[in-house]
Amino acid sequence: MISFSIQKPDETIREALIDKINDLTKPKGSLGTLEELALQIGWIQQTLKPVLSKPHNIIFAGDHGIADEGVSLSPKEITRQMIGNFLGGGAGVNFLARQHHFTLKVVDGAIDFDFPPIEGLINRKIRKGTRNFLHEAAMTEEEMDQAIRTGAEIVRNCQREGCNIISFGEMGIGNTSASSMWMTCLTGIPLSECVGAGSGLNQEGIRHKYNILKQSLDNYQGDNTPIDIMRYFGGIEMVMAVGGMLRAAELNMLILVDGFIMTNCALVASKLYPDLLHYCIFGHQGDEAGHKLVLEYLHAKPLLHLGLRLGEGTGAICAYPIVESAVRMINEMNTFSNAAITKYF
């Protein structure tokens, strides 16, 4: 796999950031999470005046071989059908991107369909869906490496367009199954606590999904390293997101993490490069079973809990105004010294 240079931001500026935040005209700590975010963002950007520039949301799309085992309520053709919805502006992520002025990019990484040239669709197809990990690895090492490189390339292009805060979404029937496998293998949390309803399975469907995934886990004979787990059970669109996150951290960009699937992508990325987590802001805690547990494992503090489980980057974009408020706080609030107000705490 290609390598990245991801380092913990320099601590030198932290004290100055804390002093500035504490000198704003408010009781110390009274703006809570906004203060924590302002400190994190200023620390990442190494400035007392952080800025947010041209936010982007990238949707990586791909099909999963495991979907052939009936682990999802939705058929695989939904993946390709939703591409038209994204490009036409009618999906959940679209109205949020318009509302919060996000640039939306849609990438075909592994959809099991041959699209004609479509304006707005970035064609980076590696193969038509992954293999079925019930029987074999979802992808080869070469396919995994190509997916990592592709995600990194897309993020580099966004950064060249002036973006310094980025979120990731996904479209791929079966990707909650892949995420559950990553989660159980890399955290040690029992598989039964990692498997949920996905796009709407009932209890019988969840039991079937669990049984298929348990059999897949029993069949696995790899070396249990994060790279092998990523390759064997992952989706190509998910691996692209891992590559995108790693490149974003390398470029000192802010990463807004979406729901269950993207949180597991952050999990994998952090197993490869632990310092990645310094660059992550977790947008929300969704209702998919296991999301709360994997957030707790990562010691992540999600900004919202709205009962979301759509994916696409919707929860991350919903959280963006809170991040923007934190930046406005540190830049626009007056200080006690400037306002000639006596500190009242």
Rank of each mutant, 00 (worst) to 15 (best):
S5P: 06
I6T: 09
P9S: 09
D10R: 03
E11A: 11
E11P: 03
T12W: 00
T12N: 11
I13W: 07
L17E: 09
K20Y: 09
D23N: 15
T25F: 06
K26I: 01
G32F: 04
L34A: 06
W43V: 01
L48E: 10
K49R: 12
L52A: 00
L52E: 01
H56Q: 09
A61N: 02
G62Y: 08
H64I: 00
I66T: 13
D68F: 04
D68R: 15
L73A: 11
S74N: 13
K76T: 15
E77H: 14
M82H: 11
G84W: 07
G84Y: 14
F86K: 14
R98Q: 14
H101A: 14
F102I: 02
F102K: 08
G109I: 15
I111M: 05
G120T: 11
G120W: 11
G120C: 04
R124S: 12
G129P: 03
G129M: 08
T130Y: 12
T130K: 05
R131Q: 09
A138K: 00
M139S: 13
D145V: 02
A147W: 07
R149E: 13
T150N: 15
E153P: 03
V155G: 01
V155M: 04
R156Q: 15
R156A: 14
R156K: 13
R160T: 07
E161Y: 06
E161N: 08
I166P: 01
F168Q: 07
G169P: 10
E170L: 10
M171N: 10
G174Q: 05
T176K: 00
A178G: 05
A178R: 02
S179W: 08
G188L: 11
I189L: 06
P190D: 04
G196F: 06
L201F: 14
L201I: 12
Y210S: 08
D218Y: 13
G222L: 12
G222W: 12
T225P: 09
I227N: 07
D228W: 11
F233I: 03
M238A: 12
M240L: 15
G243R: 10
G244I: 08
M245T: 00
M245L: 04
L246D: 09
R247K: 15
A248M: 05
A249Y: 01
M253P: 02
L256W: 00
N264Q: 03
K271R: 14
D275R: 00
L276C: 08
L276Q: 06
H278P: 02
I281S: 06
I281N: 05
G283I: 01
G283N: 02
G283R: 02
A289E: 11
H291T: 03
K292G: 10
P302R: 09
H305E: 13
H305F: 05
E312W: 03
I317K: 06
C318I: 00
A319T: 05
V323M: 05
E324P: 00
R328K: 15
I330W: 01
N334L: 10
N338W: 08
A339H: 10
K343T: 12
Y344M: 14
Y344W: 13
